[in-house]
């Protein structure tokens, strides 16, 4: 059982500089060939100052920073028993190469189903850019399969 004391826990901020090479690599990995995601001139023509981060890219910030691994360790969830239950993004401003985002998360709920066979951890994240402007909010539900 995950200790319910973790509800309300604030995770350390995860800072992710958004870089062109990484965005192109991500676009390649997901099979995205739209030039807006590869070619700065195409991104400019579409109204972006630089290559935009695709809709789900911000999930990388806490992975890169080691915040996700640390959380799983704190909660005692082995990688082998981890599933992703739900994911939500709310977008306020575009995030482009050249920006640096900071993700600040808190655990908002922990609950179980099937007599404890499945435990759910809900994390809410706020993402701000280098100008302290809120660019996105994320909600993540992870599942601990016992």
């Amino acid at each position: 059982m995950i200790d319910r004391k973790w509800i309300g826990h604030q995770l350390p901020p995860a800072v992710l500089p958004i870089e062109r090479t990484r965005l192109r690599f991500f676009a390649k990995a997901i099979g995205e060939t739209d030039p807006v995601y590869h070619d700065v001139a195409a991104a400019n023509a579409a109204g972006y100052p630089d290559l935009p981060a695709p809709p789900t890219f911000l999930f990388a910030a806490e992975l890169d920073a080691g915040v996700t691994d640390k959380l799983l360790e704190d909660l005692g969830i082995p990688l082998a028993n981890l599933l992703h239950g739900e994911q939500s993004f709310t977008y306020h401003r575009p995030v482009c190469a050249g920006d640096t985002v900071t993700v600040r998360s808190a655990i908002t709920d922990i609950y179980d189903k099937k007599n404890g066979a499945l435990e759910f951890v809900v994390k809410a994240s706020r993402v701000t850019n280098q100008n302290e402007i809120l660019v996105a909010e994320l909600s993540t539900t992870i599942v601990y399969r016992h």
């Binding site: 807006v36 579409a46 109204g47 972006y48 935009p52 695709p54 809709p55 789900t56 599933l83 992703h84 239950g85 739900e86 994911q87 939500s88 993004f89 709310t90 977008y91 575009p94």
Partner: peptide, 13 residues
């Protein structure tokens, strides 16, 4: 739609 029009995106796995 261009990505700039996307306001919310939810998935249940």
């Amino acid at each position: 739609v261009p990505q700039g029009r996307l306001r919310r995106f939810d998935a249940r796995f």
